[in-house]
C-alpha cells in the first residue's frame, strides 16, 4: 500500500512539474465559466443541475489528457524499466498511477465548488442534489480515468493513448443517444451500459447503489485489463 502511495505521490507531483495540470485545470475552468452562467440567468433558478452535464461533457477531453502519459510516456522514455525492476507489484503501479489521476480530478472538482457556492449566495441552493451530483461526477470521471489508464497501457504514444481513451469514453457517454437506431433488445442493453443512464439519476439527487456499483465495476474492469496489459510484456 505504501508503494502505491509513493507512486501516486510522484505521479501527482509530476502533473505540476510540467504544464499538463495547469493547462487542463485552466481550460476546464475557463470553458465552464463560459458556458455555465448564460443559461443560468436565462432559467433564473438557483440550481447547479446543468453544471454536472456540462462537466461530464468537459471530462471527455480532460480525463484522457490526464491519463495519456501515465504509462505510455514511461514506456516511450524507458523509465518503466527501472520502475518495474523495483520491488513493486504491477497492481501497485497501476493503482498508484490511477490514484494520482483521480487526485487531480478531485482537485479539479474542488475548484468548481466556487459555482454552487456563488449560486447559493444568489438564492436558495438545495445542497443534497449538488453533493450527489459531485458524487456522480467523481464516479463517472473515475471510470473515464480508468479507461484512460487502460488506453495508456496499450501504447507508448501519448497521442494514441489520448484518442483511444477519448473514443471509448465518447462511446460510453453518448451511446444512449443512438438507441432509436437499434433493435429493442439490443437497445436496452446498450442503454444500461451507457454512462448517462447511471449518471442522470445521481445528478438529479437519487443515489442508487446499482449505479454506484456500475461505475465501480467499470473502474475495476478497466484497471484489471490495464494490469493484464502491463503484465503481458513479460511474455511478449
Amino acid at each position: 500500500m505504501n508503494r502505491t502511495l509513493t507512486i501516486a505521490k510522484r505521479e501527482f507531483r509530476g502533473y505540476f512539474n510540467g504544464p499538463v495540470a495547469y493547462i487542463v485545470v485552466c481550460l476546464f475552468l475557463l470553458v465552464m465559466g463560459m458556458f455555465f452562467w448564460s443559461p443560468f440567468f436565462i432559467a433564473n433558478r438557483a440550481t447547479v443541475r446543468g453544471m454536472f452535464d456540462l462537466m461530464a461533457f468537459l471530462l471527455l477531453p480532460t480525463a484522457p489528457a490526464l491519463t495519456m502519459g501515465l504509462l505510455a510516456e514511461e514506456k516511450r522514455t524507458g523509465t518503466i524499466e527501472i520502475l518495474l525492476t523495483m520491488p513493486v507489484r504491477d497492481t501497485e503501479v497501476i493503482l498508484g498511477k490511477y490514484l494520482a489521476a483521480f487526485g487531480l480530478l478531485a482537485v479539479l472538482m474542488l475548484c468548481t465548488l466556487a459555482y454552487p457556492l456563488s449560486v447559493s449566495s444568489l438564492g436558495h441552493l438545495d445542497w443534497g442534489p449538488a453533493l450527489s451530483g459531485y458524487g456522480a461526477l467523481l464516479l463517472e470521471g473515475g471510470a473515464m480515468l480508468a479507461i484512460g489508464v487502460l488506453a495508456s497501457s496499450w501504447t507508448d504514444n501519448q497521442l494514441v493513448a489520448f484518442f483511444t481513451s477519448a473514443v471509448i469514453c465518447f462511446a460510453f457517454l453518448f451511446m444512449s443517444r443512438f438507441l432509436l437506431f437499434l433493435p429493442p433488445g439490443v437497445a436496452s442493453i446498450v442503454e444500461w451500459l451507457s454512462f448517462d443512464y447511471h449518471f442522470d439519476d445521481m445528478a438529479r439527487g437519487v443515489i442508487d447503489t446499482r449505479n454506484v456499483i456500475y461505475f465501480l465495476s467499470v473502474i475495476g474492469f478497466s484497471l484489471a485489463l490495464a494490469f493484464r496489459s502491463l503484465e503481458s510484456r513479460r511474455w511478449s
Binding site: N2, R3, T6, I7, R10, R13, G14, N17, G18, T77, G78, T79, E81, I82, M86, P87, V88
Partner: peptide, 22 residues
C-alpha cells in the same frame, strides 16, 4: 537507457527510489 524521470530533482528522485524500496 538510464531513463530517469526528467522532471524530478535529483534529491526528489533518490528519495522516491528509497521510499519505493521500502
Amino acid at each position: 537507457s538510464t531513463a530517469l524521470y526528467q522532471d524530478m530533482l535529483v534529491l526528489e528522485y533518490l528519495e522516491y527510489a528509497a521510499e519505493i524500496r521500502g
